[in-house]
């Protein structure tokens, strides 16, 4: 562990992992929270104990929080604006007479 990059508050802390659980077959993995673990294997074990004590899942993913790249809220407008002005991507954009069946 490179101590110089840690603040006094986090020194000696196990790395932070984000946990994703697949609730049942057929569903996506969903983010459920985070935990600390020394390595990947321990993170899986801790995730089982913390997040799946009652059949909440059939599969777990853990990933170092530091490995996630996210869009920032500051980028909200430029990031998501393109989808706002493309109304033709939605089925309701198209006028079809009511008497046309199965549309």
């Amino acid at each position: 562990m490179s101590a110089e990059t840690q603040t006094p508050a986090t020194r000696g802390e196990w790395p932070l992992y984000e946990v994703f659980v697949r609730g049942k077959r057929g569903l996506n993995h969903v983010h459920v929270g985070s935990l600390h673990a020394a390595d990947d294997q321990m993170a899986i074990h801790h995730a089982r104990d913390v997040y799946t004590r009652r059949n909440e899942g059939v599969s777990l993913w853990v990933v170092r929080s530091s490995s996630i790249t996210a869009s920032s809220p500051d980028e909200k407008d430029p990031m998501f604006a393109p989808s706002g002005d493309k109304v033709y991507r939605h089925p309701t954009f198209y006028d079809i007479p009511d008497d046309v069946p199965h549309m």
């Binding site: 603040t7 932070l16 020394a38 929080s65 530091s66 996630i68």
Partner: peptide, 13 residues
């Protein structure tokens, strides 16, 4: 080699 904790992580405030 263990990565340092990223407290300025993208999923934290």
């Amino acid at each position: 080699m263990v990565e340092p904790n990223a407290q300025s992580s993208v999923v934290r405030h």
